[in-house]
Nucleic acid binder design. Sequence first.
DNA 1: CACGCATACTCGTATAGACGAGTGGGCAAA
DNA 2: TTTGCCCACTCGTCTATACGAGTATGCGTG
Lengths: 261, 261
Amino acid sequence: MTSLPSILGGIDPTSDRAVFRQIADQLREAIDRGRFKEGEKLPSEAELVEHYGVSRMTVRNSFSVLQGEGLVHAEHGKGVFVRPRPPVRRLASDRFARRHREQGKSAFIVEADAAGSHPKVDSLEVKEEKASQDISTRLGSVRRVLARRRRYLLDGRPVEFATSYLPLDIARGTQIAEPNPGPGGIYARLEELGHQLDHFEEEIRARMPSPSEVKTLQLASGVPVIHLIRTAFDAAGRAVEVCDTVMAADAYVLSYQLPAN
Amino acid sequence: MTSLPSILGGIDPTSDRAVFRQIADQLREAIDRGRFKEGEKLPSEAELVEHYGVSRMTVRNSFSVLQGEGLVHAEHGKGVFVRPRPPVRRLASDRFARRHREQGKSAFIVEADAAGSHPKVDSLEVKEEKASQDISTRLGSVRRVLARRRRYLLDGRPVEFATSYLPLDIARGTQIAEPNPGPGGIYARLEELGHQLDHFEEEIRARMPSPSEVKTLQLASGVPVIHLIRTAFDAAGRAVEVCDTVMAADAYVLSYQLPAN
DNA sequence: CACGCATACTCGTATAGACGAGTGGGCAAA
DNA sequence: TTTGCCCACTCGTCTATACGAGTATGCGTG
């Protein structure tokens, strides 16, 4: 390996920039310049202590800065590594268009197969429950709803956790209340039930994950989530489904097409 | 103030959960339950050291967890405070529709005024420059572009930084190359120049900000950014503008309407 | 050869102490 | 009363040390 001094500079003790920030700056720049490549191991804490002549906590402090930026991740017993950027899934805004619903499989499976990934859906849960205030408002003041929860994985990595909420008067007793909603998914079933879909509304937020989201999506530190709430409206203008989706932000690019008029 | 023991519990030394995580958990829960309200000061490091009987670094460690989650922020010399959730701007997907372009002011100013906020636009820079690889690709292999940079502020707080790129053969010498593009903005000018706008494509990502973005947007730690890249196409199918926008994620909700067919 | 253990190296957690710097209140001097 | 300083309290930074726990490697034993 190339010697450290040739990659990393020294500390400027006269600078008013904190030492641990100077170290973080140098590591960040080295990563940006490709001196440390994706997945590559950074110098160990001990090596940096040696190189900079600082205490271990100072080095750890700089690592923690870079972790917060999502640039690196530490593995106990192994080292600190440059975080590889996982391939992203691109979600087109027309993925729920009727023409994509004709075939049997879900949009997730179809797209992932096409991209050569191995998709999986787990923690499927379908149950009736009390609607939260927010969901109730979006669905037009319903008290209880059918909730369909599932988690999506790509090549073994969880990337998305979604819950669909439907009014009970629509969904109860139909195939929508079954774990497997059948070909074309619940949107196909809704249309068969006479709720011709008219349009969707999507709300997008980004934020840091809650601890439970970190667990469910196995998120590394420094990875935000995209929170998408989609409401489906039928031709009568009624909200027939709300889908609440939390996505690992480093796994997705959302794409929308908008008319200009 | 209510005594600490009544709000926060103790440490379970038999738990395999790290002490600083247990402290972070208790503080997080207290915040979630509203025992500490938005903007309110948390117990000082010294108080928590006293209460839990741990060292100061351990307490600081738990604070750093909560800061990473964007839940709290520290103010030197004052204390650690529950981060207030700033009001969010809701961006509708039709905000660039032609009918909104008739009046004089920009979408940002109009919407902010309507919301009762005090909008401002600064660091306006308009110049010709070499197109990056990505921008060049999106605009259809142009070498040089006109770049229009500006930062948007709401009630004094920077919330968004945007750069528009336009092909030189379209923009050079027109009002688009002026600091003030005139009523209706550059989209109105483009249409006057014969580039009737047909549709937009928007790509959305979320990620942690770079250090320079933290500076420009004065981001607190634990706040991600939404990165939106919009491409405008004219009726001839040509990409006539790419707008690269970085938004403080805690200041925005994006909203889209999609047809179902 | 195969297995298992010792060992060295990695990061994780925690303590104790020191000094610096920003903030705000109180007190003393003008 | 007003001004200015001091001090107490706050978080920021850094050092030095200790032990625990996960990982990988090599060597010795069976």
